[in-house]
Design a protein around this nucleic acid. Structure first.
Lengths: 194, 194
DNA sequence: TCGTGACCATACGCTCAAGTATGGAGCCAG
DNA sequence: CTGGCTCCATACTTGAGCGTATGGTCACGA
């Protein structure tokens, strides 16, 4: 209902960008395996013939879509958060952001699940390194020793990805909105120095 | 080198248990997708003909292997840890255990990655509930309010699975043994009350 | 020794999704 | 109005895995 009407330029024709957008949507929903060309074509109202005009292969689409997501993520998270002066406040903002910007985190969760895929492995590695460095820097600025900053950053980051892992489309008793906010508060209390 | 010689009863013949064991090994290594009958048959030195005598289908093998693992896990973790009286000591022991018993955790990590598989989903759900309950109880005994105990348990558990996620066969700068131990200490310090 | 049953090999068939080949509809420049 | 470019449909081929059909071998008991 949300992927059907993409952005027909004038009369139903599609562009490569349309495919990437749709790919990201089903990626967030059904994981990497759900990014199948015939299935995608159906949701876009066309057939494979269209796809293979825009992309040489399925991998190419996957790569393009993931690259696009990574770029957007870089801009949003890094830029908007890195300018917060106080490191404690910066850390709090980071944790809070998980609840908003759902789509982006869903994509990240999907990529985590497919981290053995040769195409996403380097992406996960880059993202991990970047976010870990961001956290480490924040903790260091907040007064942690270098070693302790690294450890606390790692703990925070693993808690983040573990949280994503255990929340989408499977196990774990669901939390309602209030319980969720209380949990976030607890995490901040525990992992961010007063 | 480790999966080739399983346990030929007398002369090269295999049993259903041998297949389950081998399945667990490649499951820990290559994930659920790596549990393929023809591939497994090759590593065991036989052909599919053998497999389909012991099991009606691939799913059956997967289920049997996972059940076996879950049973062993139940015995090892739950039984050996639950008898520790002091809740703080119990929590420390839990964290320490992640470094030993590597195989078991590797299987869990593989299952996490395939948590959308209809066969794996209920397993993950059960395991999650059990371990979460275990942690929650320990924190409650250690003096946490019920709500805080739940939150802290969830934080610890997500940190655990996130840690697994980001360490096997992909991303994240590797830690050496000493750094790893220091990290565990930091986690215990942070998440376990003094 | 004979035959029965446990275990395995060989050779198929079936399905699904990726990729290919080719042609057709619409539009725009000349 | 015509040729060419863009975007798409239809109909194929191909490869990987699962599952099936059928027969062979070896051990062991009667």
């Amino acid at each position: 209902m949300t992927a059907a009407e993409q952005k027909p330029d004038s009369r139903g024709r599609l562009s490569a960008t349309d495919w990437e957008q749709a790919a990201l949507e089903v990626l967030a929903q059904g994981g990497v395996a759900a990014v199948a060309v015939e299935s995608l074509a159906r949701t876009l109202g066309v057939t494979k013939g269209s796809f293979y005009w825009h992309f040489p292969t399925r991998e190419a689409l996957l790569k393009a879509a993931i690259d696009r997501w990574e770029q957007r993520d870089e801009d949003q998270v890094i830029a908007h958060v890195e300018r917060i002066a106080d490191p404690r406040e910066r850390l709090r903002e980071l944790f809070q952001r998980v609840s908003r910007e759902v789509q982006s985190h869903l994509v990240y969760a999907a990529l985590l699940q497919a981290s053995d895929h040769p195409l996403v492995q380097p992406v996960i590695e880059r993202i991990s390194r970047r976010r870990l460095a961001l956290l480490t820097a924040a903790y260091a600025e907040a007064g942690f020793e270098p070693r302790a900053a690294r450890h606390r950053a790692r703990l925070a980051y693993t808690a983040y990805s573990g949280f994503l892992q255990l929340n989408q489309r499977h196990g774990m008793p669901r939390m309602d909105q209030e319980e969720y906010q209380a949990y976030i508060d607890h995490v901040i209390e525990t992992l961010v120095p007063a």
